[in-house]
């Protein structure tokens, strides 16, 4: 059994150590808000926080996590940055199909937690790993700025 700290709870899972966190979240624990997109850390749909940092869960073996705290989209709204990002996402109608947005929000929340007033290059650096096929990038950029309390560009 592997012990994980997920969204403030200790969860025990019976999987082999090299199982990626993504599939443990989705298929074993039923936390389906974290999405599968590519499996090779190219699209960011599976982004979660590990000790507050954005990590691609599709390549993170559960055996390597140890005592570090995992936060998923289901609980990110309980962090100040996560709640601000979710609100800005709704206020600016960022979302279209929505499938990638869990990952986008996790990346944006980690960015704001570390860099409360990001400029365009900070946003590019933090968000370029998250693909959105619906092409919501213009609004993602605006929403991050809104969540940061800046005037919209």
């Amino acid at each position: 059994m592997i012990k994980l700290q997920i969204n403030g709870q200790v969860r025990e899972v019976d999987v082999v150590e090299d199982t990626p966190l993504l599939w443990v979240l989705r298929d074993v624990l039923g936390l389906t808000g974290t999405k599968f997109g590519c499996g090779i850390a190219q699209c960011g749909a599976c982004t979660v926080h590990v000790d507050g940092k954005a990590v691609r869960s599709c390549l993170l073996a559960v055996g390597a996590i140890g005592n570090r705290a995992v936060t998923t989209i289901e609980a990110v709204g309980q962090t100040p940055a996560g709640a601000r990002v979710q609100k800005a996402w709704l206020d600016l109608e960022v979302v279209q199909c929505g499938y990638c947005q869990s990952g986008q929000i996790m990346s944006a929340a980690a960015l704001l937690a570390a860099t409360p007033h990001p400029d365009d290059s900070d946003i590019d650096a933090a968000m370029a790993g998250n693909i959105c096929r619906c092409g919501t990038y213009v609004r993602i950029r605006a929403a991050i700025k809104k969540a940061a309390g800046e005037r919209q560009a």
Partner: peptide
Amino acid sequence: DTQDKVNGKALYGID
């Protein structure tokens, strides 16, 4: 349809 798409609750076929 967007409220549940920002908090992980929205369900797609894959979920």
